[in-house]
Design a protein around this nucleic acid. Structure first.
Lengths: 102, 102
DNA sequence: AGCATATTCAACTAGATAGCTATATGGTTG
DNA sequence: CAACCATATAGCTATCTAGTTGAATATGCT
């Protein structure tokens, strides 16, 4: 149980994968295009996409020579958004603590 | 940006830490008690709690010989709940796919 | 002070994984 | 079929980290 949840969190615990998901938020993209945008090797992007696909976060569509990937589970965006908000809240709290010393 | 979010996900990408948070969901607990419940060494639990505390997920209170930890950011439970639901949805979909072959 | 208990720190080991390079696979076009 | 392109995979290295062990620190008791 805990380890299944941890697995899902670990999938998202990687900046490159998060950037991939962000690039995919506008719609499906090819592997090569993603690699170019990220400045990563094609092999690296392919591996990350395979991990995301295995987990069902992303789906694959082949069209001729190209493979297009798209987000199949928008819930990941909700998760990222919530984490983002938590981080922002924490940062705000730190700033407030600096202005209001004990 | 992406790496900050990834850091937060990585913090939760560990079964032991998730189990710790679960044990803490009922209220504050001492390090020793948590270690006993988890069957982990005290040093190990202490280290995990330090990571969670650094991230602001958990807070520390010393009382005599004991240190009590408590969840200070309930948002983590929301995250875990959502991941859990996603996993359940995926599992259900797999079962349905088995019953409804192409 | 001296001793016992609870927690943390430091150094180490073993396992996991991100990224690289090179190669293989699948698909298209001549 | 052969050449070529986009993607996937395999093998490798370097880095990171969970867990262990033993020492160090802190608090309470007598």
């Amino acid at each position: 149980m805990a380890s299944a949840i941890a697995d899902r969190f670990r999938l998202l615990a990687e900046p490159t994968r998060l950037r991939l998901l962000d690039l995919l938020s506008d719609g499906e993209r090819s592997v090569g295009g993603l690699a170019q945008d990220l400045g990563c090797s094609q092999a690296n992007v392919s591996k990350h996409l395979a991990l995301l696909a295995d987990a069902g976060v992303v789906r694959r569509r082949r069209d001729g020579l190209h493979c297009f990937y798209a987000v199949s589970d928008p819930a990941v965006f909700v998760l990222c958004g919530q984490v983002c908000e938590t981080l922002r809240r924490n940062a705000d709290a730190r700033v407030a603590a600096l202005r209001e010393p004990a």
